[in-house]
Design a protein around this nucleic acid. Structure first.
Length: 425
RNA sequence: GGAGAGGUCGCAUAGUUGGUCUAGUGCGCGCGACUCGAAAUCGCGUAUGCCGCAAGGCAUCGAGGGUUCGAAUCCCUCCCUCUCCGCCA
């Protein structure tokens, strides 16, 4: 939720943000409701004061006279509050100053490239062909058992999956490694290590709403018997980790990393990416989340992107860093960057990571605050980013490291962890 | 699944014949005194939101509704938590 003060101070800015983010919200209506509710609140306050005075003085006659006097105003206020809140919740976060304005993903901006797409002296195959031949992916059986967009990963693919997680966890919990990455990226952020978390995979509707991730509901798996949703990302249950708390400034940044499945119904993407494991109803992901002071939120996001780049460089996979434009940003995002990795099977870059900076948009709903060193209170700023989307990283590995004979070379950093350097049938 | 208990200001608790309770006490925390320093001790302070330049006012004792001149205290609905038994990885 946006700070109402921003709306009062600069409604034009909010209107522009809504327009740029393709959000249709009647800002003038919100402002009208806001002043109405303040006016009513004031009148009710005055009435209450009189009632209280009468009650305290045990002036029964005066009390009886005032009884029920404000109920009509209360009813009005209730109706206004309801509409006001609904509208407020539908206003997206303001995009950061450096977010490019654009309608959709076509207008996203590539910030930089790393690595060169590999040259093959044969026609490169796609990951499903490679993976099926090597016995790593069995989608046919998964369809029979669970339906489309599910898969069995088998054999070395599973070992690689855990090796990727291990790689991420070992870096993220090592202060010296983090310090080196910060130095290389010329950032000035804390090198505080991440706390590993194994979070719940189900979430209550009210908390999901506070994370501003419940919508679109059609995208979520819902379990009616328990009124619970399956998470679509570890972010969904990592973000509420400090719900209702006031943290001390010295505790920030508070960083967490989790390795969990993510569940997505993929509503509206029928027919898109149906082959292979690029877009599944269930996939595994290592996710980073952080809570910081408002001053450090932006740098924290740059740090997360630096970590993502570090991981992909460690695997020696060619990628590009993309700044998402306003029209392609999520509602809670102020700034959104993606890492897109080269996929030779498709001959293009595909999203493997994202990094979302939410400012205080989620924290305001979650009521997660920080008591600053000067004693003041403010909402924390929150960041969330992928460390590894395991399935998509496996795709990139299979396709970029494939050999003419159908085998796949294992990236060195992973070979050390799994104990083998070549995937063969 | 069966039975019961309960949700109060960071934590723990007091408050259940309705008014002097927005709320006491202990712990924690902050400042100060004492001390060479510390512990201990003592003193003061210590929720959030909204309106207001301020003085101050209003709201909040899980949420919503009701009774009453007046509710943390009574009634109703809902939510949540805990305990015991059963079942179970």
């Amino acid at each position: 939720m946006l700070d109402i003060k921003i709306l009062r101070d600069d409604p034009e800015k909010v209107k522009l943000a809504c327009k740029n983010k393709n959000a249709d919200v009647d800002i003038d209506r919100v402002l009208t409701l806001d002043s109405e509710r303040r006016r009513l609140r004031g009148e009710i306050d005055e009435l209450n004061q009189e009632r209280k005075k009468a009650a305290q003085a045990k002036d029964i006659e005066e009390g009886k006279r005032l009884k029920g006097y404000g109920s009509e105003l209360e009813a009005q206020l209730n109706a206004i509050e309801t509409e006001f809140t609904t509208l407020m919740l539908s206003i997206p976060n303001l995009p950061s100053d450096d977010t490019p304005v654009g309608k959709d993903e076509a207008e996203n901006v590539v910030l930089r490239n790393w690595g060169e797409p590999p040259e093959f002296d044969f026609v490169p195959k796609d990951h499903l062909t490679i993976g099926s031949a090597l016995g790593l992916i069995d989608s046919e059986k998964a369809v029979q058992v669970s339906g489309v967009r599910f898969t069995y990963l088998k054999g070395a693919a599973v070992l690689l999956q855990y090796a990727l997680a291990q790689l991420a966890f070992s870096v993220l919990t090592d202060q010296d490694e983090l310090q080196a990455i910060i130095k290389k990226a010329k950032l000035s952020v804390s090198a505080k290590p991440f706390t590993p978390v194994a979070p719940p995979l189900m979430i209550r509707p009210d908390v999901f709403q506070k994370m501003a991730r419940l919508e679109p509901k059609e995208e979520r798996y819902y379990i009616p018997s328990d009124d619970a949703f399956l998470i679509g990302s570890a972010e969904h249950t990592l973000g509420p980790l400090h719900m209702g708390e006031t943290l001390k400034e010295a505790e920030l940044p508070a960083r967490y990393v989790a390795f969990t499945p993510a569940f997505r119904r993929e509503a509206g993407s029928y027919g898109k990416d149906t082959k292979g494991i690029l877009r599944l109803h269930q996939f595994d992901k290592v996710e980073m989340e952080s809570f910081s002071t408002p001053d450090n939120g932006l740098a924290e996001q740059d740090f997360f992107v630096a970590l993502q780049e570090h991981f992909m460089q460690t695997l020696d996979l060619p990628y590009q860093v993309v700044m998402t434009c306003t029209g392609d940003q999520g509602d809670p995002d102020a700034r959104h960057l993606d890492i897109e990795t080269w996929m030779p099977g498709q001959g293009k870059y595909r999203e493997t990571h994202s990094a979302d900076y939410m400012t205080d948009y989620q924290a305001r709903r979650l009521n997660t605050k920080v008591k600053r060193a000067d004693g003041s209170l403010s909402f924390v700023h929150m960041n969330d980013a992928t460390a590894f989307a395991v399935g998509r990283t496996l795709i990139a590995i299979l396709e970029n490291y494939q050999n003419a004979d159908g085998s796949v070379t294992v990236p060195e950093a992973l070979a050390e962890l799994v104990g083998f350097g070549l995937l063969t049938a």
